Amino acid sequence: MSGFFAELGKQLADRWLKLLVLPGLLFVAVVLAGTTLGQRHAFDLPQTARQAEKLTTASHNVTAAALLIAGVLVASGAAGLLANVLAAAADRAWLGTWPRPLGWVASWRVKKRRKRWSSLSAEIDRAEDPVPLMVKRAGYAYAAPRRPTWMGDRLCGVDAVVYQEYRLDLDVAWPRFWLLFPAEVKAELVAARAAYDRAAALGGWGMLYCGAGIVWWPAAVAGLLTFCTGWIQARDRVDQYAALAEAAVDLYIVQLAESLPDSPQNGGFHHDLGAPITKLLRKGG
């Protein structure tokens, strides 16, 4: 057991170093440089060189150098933790799970998006060639909007489309699907989710650098660019994840029906079988 805990501690330390300390070191360096340069002399490199020389001189004192290194490491770790908190905030903002004080804004956004969805649907009903308009509507939302953001609706759209096609409640069915998926399917889904998490992390670091703009305005510019990059990547990753999840359901829904006890499955899966499967998974609810 001691070997297990030693290896676990090593892995946690490596993860802490890679995810928190190393990115945090760059942030701490930016803040220190910004504090030295200030807003009016944002690119005064000679001033930065002079301050770096002072730090180098101070580092000859072993005690001072140890305290300096410890302080930088602690500050770097704290910056990484704060970036993680901001990444979670970006995740909630992008997916439309806004806090209760913003509930009225979310409701207003949902109503506005539903109105646009209904308008596009009416155009589709009137059009002689509805395909281009259907593609346009799918780009706006795959199903009637339920979230105030596109990314939130893209994920909710999978549930809505699956229910519309199969009358299957994906919320209760997904854990069973997960147990049926082969390793390669799980790996694809996990990789897609991890890619989205990395995009959210970029958003968190972007907000953190925007905050550093208080002491050095170039940091705010870099932060804004980083946040926008994370947002663009997140939209793409959410779309990929939703498409993979929907495809996995299409491919394994028959196996799910066949694997359940007392399942009404009898041959191919069709529209009328989803409702009893959903009832079965909800334990009769």
Rank of each mutant, 00 (worst) to 15 (best):
S2N: 03
G3N: 02
F5T: 14
A6V: 15
L8P: 05
L12I: 05
L12Q: 10
L20C: 08
G24S: 09
G24W: 10
F27G: 07
V28G: 07
A29P: 09
A29N: 13
T35W: 02
T35Q: 02
G38W: 06
A42N: 07
F43T: 15
D44C: 02
L45F: 03
Q47H: 07
Q51I: 01
K54E: 09
L55F: 05
L55Y: 05
A58M: 14
H60G: 04
V62S: 13
V62W: 14
A64D: 04
A65S: 03
A66M: 08
L68A: 03
I69E: 08
A70K: 04
G71V: 08
V72S: 06
V72T: 15
V74E: 07
S76K: 03
S76E: 14
A78W: 08
L81Q: 09
L82F: 04
L82K: 05
V85C: 04
A87K: 00
A90C: 12
D91H: 12
L95V: 09
G96K: 01
W98V: 02
P101V: 09
W104G: 00
W104C: 01
V105D: 03
V105G: 04
R109K: 12
R109H: 11
V110H: 12
K112I: 05
K115W: 14
W117S: 07
S119L: 13
A122Y: 11
E123Q: 13
P130M: 15
L133D: 02
L133S: 05
M134I: 11
M134R: 15
M134G: 05
R137Y: 06
A138P: 01
A138H: 03
Y142C: 12
P145A: 08
R147V: 08
W150V: 08
M151Q: 14
M151K: 12
G152L: 13
D153S: 10
R154H: 12
R154T: 11
C156W: 13
V158M: 11
D159Q: 11
V161P: 01
V161F: 00
V162Q: 02
V162N: 02
Q164E: 13
E165K: 14
Y166L: 15
D169R: 05
L170C: 10
D171E: 07
V172W: 06
R176Y: 10
F177V: 13
W178Q: 11
L179M: 14
L180A: 15
V185L: 12
V185G: 08
V185M: 14
A187M: 12
E188W: 09
Y196K: 07
D197P: 03
R198T: 12
A200W: 12
A201H: 04
L202P: 06
G203M: 01
L208W: 00
G211P: 00
G211D: 04
P218L: 06
A222Y: 09
A222E: 08
A222L: 04
A222C: 14
G223W: 15
L224K: 01
L225A: 04
T226K: 06
C228P: 03
G230I: 09
R235T: 07
D236H: 10
Q240R: 05
Y241E: 03
A243L: 10
A248F: 03
A248Y: 12
A248K: 06
D250Y: 11
V254Y: 07
Q255F: 15
S259W: 07
S259M: 07
L260H: 06
D262H: 01
S263V: 06
Q265M: 13
Q265P: 00
N266R: 06
N266Y: 06
G267H: 12
H271I: 10
A275K: 15
A275E: 14
K283I: 00
K283F: 02
